[in-house]
Design a protein around this nucleic acid. Structure first.
Length: 462
RNA sequence: UCCUCAGUAGCUCAGUUGGUUAGAGCGGCGGACUGUUAAUCCGUAGGUCGUAGGUUCAAGUCCUACCUGAGGAGCCA
C-alpha cells in the first residue's frame, strides 16, 4: 500500500477507504481507552488526527507514541466524530518508526520563542511556523523561475568564486587553499597569491551583476538566482552573511522599463504566494503578524509611487517632522527617512530614482544634469529597501571616467569594459534580496528566521 | 563596529532598599478521566542564578571585564 500524505488525506478524497500514513507526532491526548494522535508530515500546515483505541494496541507501542516520534499508521479514513477536524484515521495498525525521548526532545506543544528555535535550527522545521515559512520559501523560489521563464529570460549561473573585488558592494570572504600556518610571502612581506589555487586572490561573490550584464548583452534578458556573501559585521534583523539574491539584467531596457519590471515582478510573487500558500499565510497572519494578509493584498492592488530623489528630499524637508539625522540633498536617505516616505507620507511602496552620483556605484548611468545617476531603489513598508537597481552606463568613455574618479581598477574589469567597446546598448537591471522578500511575504521580522541555516557574525552552527 | 537592554529549572518568566532553605506557569514523570482539540484534574522530580574577577559580615541582586542573545544605528539586499 502506498503512503498518503497528510495533504492528500485532508483533502477528503480518500474518505471511507483504507489508507497508510507516515509522519511525526505533534501531540498525543486521550485517556485509558483511546488515544488521539496529531500527526504531521510537513506536506501541509495542518495535522491529521489518528484515533487509536487502546485495546487494539499493546501498551508499550502506545507508550512510545510521544511528541517528536515518527510513526506509520494504517487505518480507515473516516469522517470525524469530534469537532475540530473533518476527517481522521481510525487506526488498525500502528508502528513506531523512530522513538523520541520526551525528556530530551526540545519541542513542546506550546509555542517557543524564535530565539530559542534558532538554537535548534535542525529541529525547527517541525514547528508550524517554520514549516509554513519554508514551504513559502520553496513556492517563491519556484515562482521566480516561473515568472522569468514565462517572460523569456534565461537563468544564468554567475560564478560564486570571483577574482574581481571591484564591485564595491561590501566586504568579502577570502577564498584560498594557502596553508594559513605558513603563508608564502615575497621579499616585501606581501602574500604571494601566485601560489594560491587560482594563481590570484579570490573571494566569494557579493553580486552576480557584472557577469549578469555580460550575459544580457548577448542573450537580451537574463536573471541570476543564487547565494551571495557579505563579510560585513552587520548585526541586525535584516542582514545575514550568506543570502540569496535575484538579479535580472535586461538589454534594451531603460530605467522606466526597469521599474515596470520590478513592480510587476514583486506583485506577481506576492500574488503567487497568496494563491499557492493560502493555508500557511493564514496561519502566519494569525500567529505572527495580524496585518500580514491585509498588507499583501494592499501591495498587489496599488501602484507603487515613483519619485526622484530630489523631490523626495523636498518632501522630507517640508514634512516638518523631526529626524534624528537631518535631510540634505547629496547625502543618502536614512532608514528613518525612507520609513517616513513609505509608512507615513504615501503609505505604499515607493520607487526612488535619480540619486546623487556620489552615493551610488560606478556602473550606474549618468544623467544629463551631471549630478545624478539613474539608480532606483524600491522601498517597502516594514523592511525598507527590498530592491536596488539602475540603468547601467553604456557609454565607454563616461564609464571609464567614472571608474577613474572612483578608483575602480579598470584593468581588472577589462572584460566588463569590452561590452561597451563592442556593440554597447542601453541596459538595466536590479537586485532583489530573496530573504528580504520572504520577510515581507511571511511577516517574519528577523531575517534569520526565513533562511534555514542563517550565517551571521559568530554563528555558523549546523 | 557603535548605542541600549537582557542572560535565573528543558521552555517562558518572577525574584522588593544586598539578608534565612531561589519561586510560578508550561513541558517531563506518576496517577485519575469513555472522543480529546495548546484537553482537564491530583501528585512529583528538576537550579554551579552566562563566565571570570571584585566590593561586602553577607551577592541572583552592587562594580569591572569578557561571552552570548535581542532591539536600534551604520553598511547594504
Amino acid at each position: 500500500m502506498t503512503r498518503s500524505t497528510v495533504k492528500e488525506l485532508l483533502s477528503g478524497e480518500k474518505v471511507n477507504s483504507e489508507v497508510l500514513l507516515k509522519g511525526w507526532v505533534r501531540t498525543r491526548r486521550g485517556n485509558k481507552n483511546v488515544a488521539f494522535i496529531a500527526v504531521n508530515d510537513g506536506t501541509v500546515i495542518h495535522n491529521i488526527q489518528v484515533v487509536a483505541d487502546a485495546e487494539k494496541f499493546p501498551e508499550e507501542v502506545l507508550r512510545d507514541v510521544t511528541t517528536g516520534s515518527s510513526i506509520s499508521v494504517r487505518g480507515q479514513l473516516v469522517e470525524s466524530m469530534g469537532k475540530g477536524q473533518s476527517v481522521e484515521i481510525q487506526a488498525s495498525e500502528l508502528e513506531v518508526l523512530g522513538t523520541s525521548d520526551p525528556e530530551d526532545y526540545p519541542l513542546q506543544k506550546k509555542g517557543h520563542s524564535f530565539e530559542f528555535l534558532r538554537e535548534i535550527a535542525h529541529l525547527r522545521f517541525r514547528t508550524n511556523t517554520f514549516g509554513a515559512v519554508f514551504r513559502i520559501r520553496h513556492a517563491l523560489s519556484f515562482a521566480i523561475h516561473n515568472y522569468f521563464n514565462e517572460k523569456g529570460f534565461f537563468y544564468l549561473h554567475t560564478p560564486i568564486i570571483t577574482a574581481s573585488d571591484a564591485e564595491g558592494a561590501g566586504a568579502m570572504f577570502r577564498v584560498t587553499t594557502l596553508d594559513l600556518d605558513n603563508i608564502p610571502r615575497d621579499d616585501r612581506k606581501k602574500i604571494e597569491f601566485g601560489q594560491d589555487f587560482f594563481g590570484r586572490s579570490t573571494n566569494l561573490t557579493v553580486s552576480g551583476q557584472l557577469e549578469g550584464e555580460l550575459g544580457a548583452l548577448a542573450l537580451s534578458s537574463i536573471y541570476t538566482f543564487g547565494p551571495t556573501f557579505r563579510a560585513e559585521n552587520s548585526n541586525t534583523p535584516r542582514h545575514v552573511a550568506e543570502f540569496w539574491m535575484i538579479e535580472p539584467e535586461m538589454a534594451f531596457y531603460d530605467i522606466h522599463d526597469n521599474m515596470d519590471l520590478a513592480e510587476d515582478f514583486l506583485k506577481y510573487l506576492v500574488r503567487y504566494a497568496m494563491e499557492h500558500c493560502a493555508d500557511d499565510l493564514e496561519f502566519l497572519n494569525k500567529m505572527v503578524d495580524k496585518e500580514l494578509l491585509e498588507r499583501l493584498r494592499f501591495i498587489v492592488s496599488n501602484d507603487f509611487v515613483r519619485m526622484g530623489y530630489t523631490e523626495a528630499v523636498e518632501i522630507l524637508e517640508k514634512s516638518g517632522k523631526k529626524f534624528e539625522f537631518p535631510v540634505k540633498w547629496g547625502s543618502d536617505l536614512q532608514a528613518e527617512h525612507e520609513r517616513y516616505l513609505v509608512e507615513e507620507e504615501f503609505k505604499k511602496p515607493v520607487i526612488l530614482t535619480d540619486y546623487p552620483e556620489e552615493i551610488k556605484s560606478f556602473y550606474m548611468k549618468q544623467n544629463e544634469d551631471g549630478k545624478t545617476v539613474r539608480a532606483m531603489d524600491v522601498l517597502f513598508p516594514k523592511i525598507g529597501e527590498i530592491i536596488g537597481g539602475s540603468q547601467r552606463e553604456e557609454d565607454y568613455d563616461k564609464l571609464v571616467q567614472r571608474m577613474r574618479s572612483m578608483d575602480v581598477p579598470e584593468e581588472e574589469l577589462w572584460w566588463y569594459l569590452d561590452t561597451r567597446r563592442f556593440g554597447t546598448v542601453e541596459h538595466s537591471g536590479f537586485g532583489l534580496g530573496f530573504e528580504r522578500l520572504l520577510m515581507f511575504v511571511t511577516g517574519m521580522s528577523n531575517i534569520r528566521d526565513v533562511i534555514p541555516f542563517p550565517r551571521t557574525p559568530k554563528n555558523a552552527e549546523f
